[in-house]
Simulated assay, not measured.
Amino acid sequence: MRILNIKTKYLLIFLIFMSCTMFSQEQNYIPYRKGKLWGLCDINKFIVIQPQYSSISSYDESIGGFHAEQNGRFGIVDRNAVMIMPFISNIPISVEGGKYLVFDGLDYYYYSIKTKMRLDRYIKQESYPVRDSGWENYNPLDRNNAKLTLSRDDLDDDDLNVLGPYDHDGYQLNYKSDFIEITEGDTYIGIYIPKLKKIFINTREIAYVGWQFYKGKPYILTTNHSELFGLVDEYFREIYPIRYTTINLIDDSHLVVLSEPDPNNKNNVIFKTLLPNNKVLYGKFEPAVTLWKNGGPFQIYYTVIDGQKNYAGEDGTLYFEG
């Protein structure tokens, strides 16, 4: 048994080592912006390429590096921060048939990935037109394309018992996708959530207008005369006060994205993102890639500024400034 335990121990160490090795073969660096110029830095914000490009892409596995742009031309910086293709293409360089494909402004040419020398001219193959509007498979009669709503047939006996005081001609039940609005004439009474078997009745100060699960727990969206939003749990305990223009609980990545009115500009809102570790990033961030730091996974997030992705780490480190 002792021998088996030792073997298991070393097998686990080997598997961990292999996973780290495979992971380290991917992206080493992160696009870094200072003002309007871009370079590369490592996960600790150590600059490996000083900001000098007009843009630089996220890591592109298909080319094994980053698309860098300078003076309207694109080149490639590899995963080790080495320029491996000069700024010769009017569009980002791609890979086709094991060769780089470059557009020089007049025509497309192949370049050798190994020698970086220009090869033969690219001849476009005849092909049928591709419909790329994104609507080709849309059928307005297909219920899968519409957000399904509840109906009375979806309710069980327990639902009907709870709704009993409001299930008559004096009230209206408006069926939504996962809850029921209760109204009385022009008065909004509250909502019933079948999954929770619970009614949330409005008060003078708070109205309940929706809900969702987040990390396995239900949360109910609230509002008032201000037309801003807040959040409570199923026991009516306040999670966020009513002061936000939007509250977005993103369950798959465990992010919370909040926006508030900008006190200095009534036409603007200010976003902030709450990370799973409760760190706060100012802006609207989404997961980008997971890298390694100090032997463990380290999540990188991105936000779009002026049409380009800007990056931040799970510890709050911003890989952009100015």
Rank of each mutant, 00 (worst) to 15 (best):
L4I: 09
N5P: 01
I6T: 12
I6S: 08
T8S: 15
K9E: 10
F17L: 14
S19H: 15
S19W: 06
S19C: 11
S19L: 03
I30V: 07
L37D: 04
G39T: 04
D42G: 05
Q50C: 05
Q50Y: 07
Q52P: 02
Q52Y: 01
S58P: 12
S58Y: 09
E61P: 10
S62P: 02
S62C: 01
G65A: 13
H67M: 07
A68T: 04
A68V: 02
Q70P: 00
N71H: 12
F74G: 08
D78A: 00
R79T: 01
R79Y: 03
F87N: 00
I88L: 03
S89V: 01
I93M: 08
G97V: 02
V102G: 00
D104V: 00
Y108C: 02
Y108A: 00
Y110V: 03
S112A: 11
K114D: 09
M117K: 13
R118A: 06
D120G: 06
Q125W: 05
S127A: 07
P129E: 01
V130Q: 13
D132N: 10
D132I: 14
S133C: 13
G134C: 09
Y138L: 08
N139Y: 02
N139E: 06
P140L: 01
L141F: 15
R143C: 02
R143M: 08
R143L: 11
N144M: 12
N144Y: 11
N145V: 10
T149H: 03
D156C: 04
D157C: 07
L163R: 13
H168G: 13
Y171F: 15
Y171S: 11
Y171C: 07
Q172H: 14
N174G: 14
E181W: 05
I182R: 06
T183F: 11
G185K: 02
D186F: 05
Y188F: 15
I189C: 01
Y192L: 09
K195W: 06
F200G: 07
I201E: 06
A207E: 01
Y208L: 00
G210N: 14
W211T: 01
P218L: 08
H225Q: 14
E227S: 10
E234N: 02
Y235N: 07
Y235I: 03
E238T: 08
I239Q: 01
P241N: 15
N248L: 12
L249M: 05
L249P: 03
D251W: 12
D252N: 15
S259C: 10
V269F: 14
F271A: 07
K272N: 14
T273K: 04
L275K: 00
N277W: 09
N278I: 01
K279I: 12
V280H: 10
L281T: 05
T290A: 07
G295R: 10
G313V: 02
E314H: 13
E314S: 06
E321P: 00
